[in-house]
């Protein structure tokens, strides 16, 4: 079975790849990508079932904080039931679940993240007092101060000269370097998966 899954994965991967270079392979590529979209949708359902199973297990074991798991399962059932009855685009569903729960909760987490990042930056030098950390803190502070606007406009020198130079020359160059490295890593990782050297779909 493991051999069969490897053969299917490699064959499908190569056919989809060929579709980008050979026009004759495009129809096959399109069909395979459409199948992939359907499989991803099925995987989303499986993911939700996995989430429910993990939390149901916690409730059954009466684990610590199991009450939250029970609330999550109840929320999932209610959302799924109402979603099937009213359809997700319904204004009631949008008002209750999207604007009433999901967006405020995620916004709260984002707000929490802001505080967390500030706290982490303050603690950075205590954890790792080396040249890189000092450079990081100094650069971040410099850009932060330079971004602040004064009543009469940009901060002189810092905002008009140093900030553009740091962000558009030094930082942009570094960013491009990192992204090129990440792209090369992704290319080689993709090739290993394509030729079955890395098999995340199992196999001893």
């Amino acid at each position: 079975m493991r051999v069969v899954s490897a053969v299917i994965a490699i064959a499908v991967g190569l056919l989809v790849l060929l579709g980008y270079f050979l026009p004759v392979a495009v129809p096959v590529q399109t069909i395979l990508l459409e199948w992939a979209v359907i499989l991803v949708a099925v995987a989303a359902v499986v993911g939700v079932i996995n989430l429910a199973t993990v939390h149901a297990d916690k409730v059954r074991r009466r684990a610590k904080d199991g009450i939250y798991s029970a609330m999550l399962i109840m929320g999932m059932i209610v959302a799924a039931g109402l979603g099937l009855a009213f359809k997700p685009q319904n204004s009631f569903m949008q008002a209750i679940f999207l604007n009433g729960i999901i967006i405020p909760v995620e916004a709260s987490l984002l707000a929490l993240l802001t505080v967390t990042l500030l706290y982490t930056a303050i603690r950075l030098l205590r954890r790792r007092a080396d040249a890189m950390s000092i450079t990081f803190i100094v650069t971040a502070s410099l850009i932060f101060f330079a971004s602040a606007t004064l009543p009469f406009g940009d901060m002189p020198i810092l905002g008009t000269l140093i900030r553009p130079w740091v962000s558009q020359i030094l930082a942009l160059g570094g960013v491009r370097g990192i992204l090129i490295g990440v792209s090369l890593g992704t290319l080689l990782t993709g090739l290993r998966v394509l030729f079955g050297i890395d098999r995340p779909y199992g196999g001893k």
């Binding site: 499989l39 991803v40 995987a43 993911g47 939700v48 996995n50 098999r199 779909y201 199992g202």
Partner: peptide, 15 residues
């Protein structure tokens, strides 16, 4: 944090 990745995670752990 992705359902497809979740499936591969389980398969990889089992392997």
């Amino acid at each position: 944090g992705d359902s497809t990745l979740g499936l591969l995670t389980q398969d990889t752990l089992e392997a």
